[in-house]
Design a protein around this nucleic acid. Sequence first.
DNA 1: TATATTTGCAACCAGTTAGTTGCGATACTT
DNA 2: AAGTATCGCAACTAACTGGTTGCAAATATA
Lengths: 105, 105
Amino acid sequence: MRRDIFQAIADPTRRAIIALIAVQAMTPNAIAEHFDTTRQAISKHLKVLTECELVKQEHQGREIYYQLEIDKMKEIDKWLEQFRKIWESRFQQLDQLLSIIKKGK
Amino acid sequence: MRRDIFQAIADPTRRAIIALIAVQAMTPNAIAEHFDTTRQAISKHLKVLTECELVKQEHQGREIYYQLEIDKMKEIDKWLEQFRKIWESRFQQLDQLLSIIKKGK
DNA sequence: TATATTTGCAACCAGTTAGTTGCGATACTT
DNA sequence: AAGTATCGCAACTAACTGGTTGCAAATATA
C-alpha cells in the first residue's frame, strides 16, 4: 500500500492525533480517550502514520508511546515553498504599487 | 459532500494540477494534455478543487480558465505554524546545547 | 442553419478507506 | 500460576474515490 504524508494528513482525525502527540508522546489508549471512537480505529490511524514515517514508536513494557517525527512535517513545508514564493512576490508587487501611488500623491 | 483543502491536496494528480495553474490560468483541455488520463478525470479533479475554493473559474467564450486561489494555500501554511514553532524551538535547544558544549571545552 | 469544439453532469465500476468486532500475543499484577 | 491490561492483526462492512463512458448545453465556425 502506497502511503504518503499528504494522504496521511487528509483525515481530520489523523491531523488531530498529530497535533496531540506533537506536544508529548502518548499511548494508543491515551490517544483514544480524546476521541469519540474505538481504540482500534485509532490504532489503524497510527498504523497509517507509522507507515509513512510521520510517527515513531517507543516500547515501554506493554505500553507503546507514539511520538511525532516532527522532521517529516517539513516535507509539507518544502512543498509549500513554491507557492510561498508566488504569494510573497504578489505581495511585493502590491507593495510596489502602493508606494507608486503614494509617490504620485 | 464534505471537502477540505487537506483532502484536495491528498491526490498527487491534483497537486500537479495546482502546481501547473499556479504559474498561469489554464483550460481543462490544456491541463489534461499534461497528464496521461482523460479530460473527464481532470474535470472531476477541477470540480473537487473548485468545491474547496482552491481554484476559481474565469469564463471566456466557451472556454473556462482555471486559476489557483493562492490565498487558500495559506491555510495549509497556517496549520503548519503550530509544528513550525515546535521544530524551531527544538533547533534552538540544540543550538543552546552546542554552545554549552563549546564553552565547556 | 448545420457542424465542430469545449465543457459539465450523470451513471456506472473497481479499488480504497475508515470503522467495527473478535481474537490472540505480550507484559504486568496479585 | 491465574487474572488483567495493552496492544496489533484479520475479517467484515458501508461509504467514498478516481476513473471511464455517454450525453446534453453552450459557443464558435462553415
